[in-house]
Design a binder for these strands. Structure first.
Lengths: 182, 182
DNA sequence: AAGTTTGTAAAATATATATTTAACGCATTG
DNA sequence: CAATGCGTTAAATATATATTTTACAAACTT
C-alpha cells in the first residue's frame, strides 16, 4: 500500500520520542515531582501545548491528577500557562530550556536549605552566647560550647557559598565560568 | 547548689545543638534520605563517632533502622566507617564538611541524569536516522522528524553542561570561580 | 565446639504519598 | 436564570515507603 513507508516512519518517530519520554520521566524524581508529573512533563516536552483534557487522554489518568501535576510543574517553572483566546480551556506549555528548570528548581532548594540553617545557627549562637556571659560556668563546659560555636561558624562558610552559588546561577554569571556551549 | 550554673549551661548547650539538629534533619530530604537517616546524620554531626547501639539509644529507634540509615548515609558519603581496634562494634563518624556531601550527592544525581538521558537520546537519534534514510517518506514526516532531532540536539547542550559542572565540582575547579571563603 | 554478641535480611506493620472518585463552585452560554 | 463545561477541592482508595519485629548468619569468646 502507498502509505506504508509513512506508517513505518510514523511508528519510528513515536518510538524515538518514546525512549526519551520514558527516560525523562524516570529521571524527573530528581526534581521532586510525582511519577504522574514526571510523565506529564516528559510528554509535554514534545508538544507545542496541551490542555487538561488532552493530558488526561494522552496519559490515561484522571483530570485532578493532571491538575495537581501541572500546578506542581508550574511551581518549578517547568510548565507555563499559555493565554489562549477563544477557548475556555486552560492551555499549558512545557519549558523546553532545561537550564531554566535547573535554575528554578535547585536555586529554590538550596535557598531554602541555606536560609533555614542560617536561621537555626543564629538562634543557636545566641543561646551559646548566654553560656559565655556567665562567669561561673566551668571551663570544661565553656570549652565544649566554644567548640560547638566554632563548628557552627565553620558550617556558615558552606551556607554562604550555597547562597553565592544560587546568586551566580540566577544572574547567569555561572555561564561565564562554565559556558553552555564551550 | 554549686552545680546550678553548669546545669543551666548544659541545658543551654543542648538546646543550642537541638535547634541545629532539628533543622538539619528537616532539610536533609534534599539529600534524598529518610527521616530516620536525616535525624541520624544531624545527631552525628555533633558527635565524634557513634556505634549502632548508641544511635539506637540516642534516637530511640530500632537497630535495623539505624543500620539501613547509616548505610544510606555512607552511599552519599555523609558518614564514614571508622576502624576502631579492640571493639567488635562498628563505629561511624559524620562527614562534617558540607562541601563534600554536596559534591558527593549532587554529582551522583546529575551524573545519572546526564548519562541516562544521553543514552536515550543516542537511541532516539539512531531511530530517527532510519526515517531520513528512507527516500519514500513524505516530506511532512521528514520535517517533523527533523524538528525532533533538532530538539534532542539542543537538549544535549544541557546534559553536556551538566557533565562539565559535575567535573568542575569533583575537581574543585569550581572554587576558583566561586571561592569557599571569598 | 557451645554460647554470645553484632549486624543485617526478611517479613510484618505502620505511615506517608499518590491517584481516583465524587462533589462543588465559578464562569460562560444559551 | 437554568444549563453546561471547566478546574479544583475533599474524601476515599490504592500504592509506595519507612520502620519495627522477628529470625538468622557470621565473627568472636570462652
Amino acid at each position: 500500500m502507498a502509505a506504508s513507508h509513512d506508517e513505518i516512519a510514523r511508528e519510528k518517530l513515536e518510538e524515538a520520542k518514546g525512549y526519551v519520554i520514558e527516560t525523562i520521566a524516570e529521571t524527573m524524581d530528581v526534581y521532586g515531582v510525582t511519577p504522574a508529573a514526571g510523565k506529564l512533563y516528559a510528554t509535554m516536552y514534545f508538544k507545542e501545548q496541551m490542555n487538561l483534557d488532552e493530558m488526561r487522554e494522552e496519559l490515561g489518568m484522571s483530570k485532578p491528577s493532571m491538575s495537581t501535576s501541572v500546578r506542581k510543574l508550574q511551581e518549578n517553572e517547568m510548565v507555563k500557562k499559555k493565554f489562549q483566546k477563544g477557548s475556555r480551556k486552560h492551555t499549558y506549555a512545557a519549558e523546553k530550556d532545561f537550564f531554566h528548570s535547573f535554575m528554578s528548581y535547585f536555586c529554590q532548594l538550596w535557598d531554602r536549605e541555606a536560609k533555614m540553617n542560617m536561621e537555626a545557627i543564629k538562634h543557636a549562637e545566641f543561646t551559646l552566647d548566654q553560656i559565655f556571659e556567665d562567669e561561673n560556668v566551668s571551663s570544661e563546659l565553656i570549652e565544649e560550647a566554644r567548640e560547638i560555636y566554632e563548628q557552627l561558624e565553620q558550617s556558615k562558610v558552606y551556607y554562604r557559598w550555597l547562597e553565592r552559588l544560587v546568586a551566580s546561577i540566577r544572574s547567569e554569571e555561572i555561564y561565564e565560568f562554565l559556558p553552555k556551549n564551550p
